[in-house]
Simulated assay, not measured.
Amino acid sequence: MSMVNIFTSFLPHLLYSQFFVTPQYPTTDCTGKTIIVTGANVGLGMEAARHYARLNVEKLIIACRSTEKGEAAKRDIEASTKRSGVVEVWQLDLQSYDSVKAFAKRAESLKRLDAIVENAGISTREYQSVAGNESTVTTNVVSTFLLALLMLPKLRESGRNFNITPTLTIVASEVHFLTAFPERKASSIFGALNSPKEARMGDRYFVSKLLEVLVCREIAREHPVEKTKVTINFVNPGWCHSQLMREMDTAPIRVLQKIFCRTTEVGSRTLVHAGLASPETHGKYLSDCKTMPCAPLVEGKGGLETQKRVWQELSEILNGIEPGVTKVLDA
């Protein structure tokens, strides 16, 4: 993305949003609902889970890699909401495809599932190969959408049984505006992303969030909500205090965070809103609890072609992990 585009399409919205917009405090009654929030042992995920518990969900599943940390989050949420017997902690490691598959298999036993908010992710500047891809790609993209596809049958079943349209929310970010994504010009996009020599780890997190946006849009474009029977949307929580940027914990960053950042609780309101949003948000980018345009790289010239290529390549990777998994979209 050029500096001109950053100043004209990103920076004004960022400043306005951070300083003049406060997402509405969630009040939607969730009686009877079952909701899963991944990465909910800390930060935005934990605060979103706390809101859902407060809003009277019947069952709330905290999905996280460390069950010990998950249990600590459960105790914290139960103490603050004065609700017990509602929160469950399920192990989920997005750096292990077997863990993702096991989690989805376990979810088949649920009586119902109204929403899953996929919040878990990593931000790192260190290149590491995990499960056949660079670790950020594995965690934020491949496993995130593997889980999404594996959860679709349960979401659809709940929709049929309870006459609802369940929601699958991917927690993306406005930082998808901040990458020029030169890998899109490579003969293999994921090949370029996974090459230790070519990997540009300085903006890898930005790229991973752009890939989430592109994939959600392409799935929704090919599969409208009337076909999926599930609302698939993606949300920007804004710049919030969280542990995501712990690798960039420097004095200048801490000063910027103090000036600009929303509290974790305020940012989490956007996740709660997206997870409860209507089918009108299918395939849409939500920011400040309303639909907003995506980056020019997404919606401008060449965006659709890039979107199709990313989804085609990711589909091949996903079907290699779980043969036929993308066919669930046409079921």
Rank of each mutant, 00 (worst) to 15 (best):
S173R: 05
S242G: 05
C30G: 04
S143Q: 10
M248K: 12
G238K: 05
P296M: 10
T144H: 09
E78P: 02
R217N: 14
I62C: 00
F10P: 00
N161K: 14
V255T: 13
L178K: 02
R309M: 08
I189K: 02
V42G: 01
D76F: 08
L149W: 04
A295Y: 03
N319L: 03
V37E: 01
G300L: 13
D29I: 13
P196G: 06
L214N: 05
K290E: 15
E212D: 12
R204S: 09
A102K: 14
P296R: 12
W90R: 08
I170R: 00
E134W: 05
E280Y: 07
W239L: 12
K290P: 00
H223E: 05
E222Y: 01
K59F: 02
G303K: 14
S187C: 08
H273W: 15
P224F: 02
A48W: 10
R160I: 04
S173I: 10
F177Q: 05
A199F: 10
T326F: 04
I219Y: 00
N319S: 01
K301N: 09
A331G: 08
L11V: 15
E198H: 07
E265Y: 06
V130A: 13
A63T: 02
N236S: 12
I259L: 15
A63S: 06
R309Y: 07
S129L: 13
R54W: 06
R204A: 12
M46I: 03
F103S: 01
N140Q: 05
S96L: 09
S123T: 05
L297D: 03
W90H: 11
L11N: 05
N161A: 11
W311D: 01
A104S: 11
T28Y: 11
K227D: 09
S129T: 13
R254Q: 15
T270L: 06
N5A: 09
T81Q: 02
V37H: 04
